[in-house]
Design a binder for these strands. Sequence first.
DNA 1: GTGTCGATGTCAGTCACTGACATGGGGAGA
DNA 2: TCTCCCCATGTCAGTGACTGACATCGACAC
Lengths: 183, 183
Amino acid sequence: MGRWEPDARGRMTAAAMELYAERGFDQTTAGDIAERAGVTERTFFRHFTDKREVLFNGAEALENTVRETILTAAPEVSALEAALAGLHVCAALIDERRDFAVRRAQIIEATPSLRERELLKLARLAEVAAAALGGRGVPETAALLAAHSAVTVFNLSFWHWVRTGGTFAGHFTDTAAALRSMT
Amino acid sequence: MGRWEPDARGRMTAAAMELYAERGFDQTTAGDIAERAGVTERTFFRHFTDKREVLFNGAEALENTVRETILTAAPEVSALEAALAGLHVCAALIDERRDFAVRRAQIIEATPSLRERELLKLARLAEVAAAALGGRGVPETAALLAAHSAVTVFNLSFWHWVRTGGTFAGHFTDTAAALRSMT
DNA sequence: GTGTCGATGTCAGTCACTGACATGGGGAGA
DNA sequence: TCTCCCCATGTCAGTGACTGACATCGACAC
């Protein structure tokens, strides 16, 4: 691929995480990140649409996981349970990288504009889940409700996990149970 | 208040809505808005923290409505029903200004960065609702789940209302019913 | 009539992001 | 092994969002 030092993208991601954690998102310029990664500011913006996106690389992988898990769920499974299953697999994946996830979460928590971007990614995840449910024949409104509910469980249990420890998947299971017994 | 033409804020909001609708958010500069409103770009940024915020003036009013409705709900009402009641009142308020709401929704829909901001406002609304439920003695996880679920109902029925007509409150009631029967 | 105060104007600066064009090394094919 | 092409990167100049510091001006109190 590249012909200079390989994995420019990975170096930029690492540099950004370091700098955001060291001095904060607002005090870090795109040029700072590029410099630490040994590339040009222009190259940074060729890889990432903006300064925030560098923290949201894994989003597409999660979307694929959700989509495929929902689509391959047994046909008799309800919309809500299929959506929960999809997000539960995501939680289990993230469980494997607690260290990274926590550092990233702390950076996001400290910066409103990053929280904003995170909400957009979660909304996209819900849309993907809803579309997958649609592919199972679930009517639109039911699909959207189930998808957004599952993403809410995902989001709430994520932050609970970051703050309290344990396993993400475990918190997810607990929160899902609370949701089922809510009505 | 001001000593020049009064209601600079209102003029800027109106100008921004016009320009965003006419030529799009990205093709509108803060200077354009200020000029049409008869003020300076600097004045625009004194009233609004950024170019997007101009479309989200009513957010605080909604938050107050949600908070007070939840806090004054009958004590025997469940967390979910209290949260739904709070958001239902908001829906009824917005029903009174369909024209404005639809124009605003079309602008937001056309611009990803505005969708992002809208999600942040909805998240804040959910946090306010959850805090109000906390004030009623609801445990944290249950409060967060109920609040976010109600906001999801609000959001989904809002877009359904924008696209199909009818009343926002009516769509809200239907979607809330679908949520209750989901589990 | 004078002084204070808050909203506004002015100005200069930083930085996110973009388009256009140049470059250089690696790999496919001769 | 040489050559040509491609693509990731570098270079450069520009636009526009936002900010801080300071000047101003009109309403209102006294």
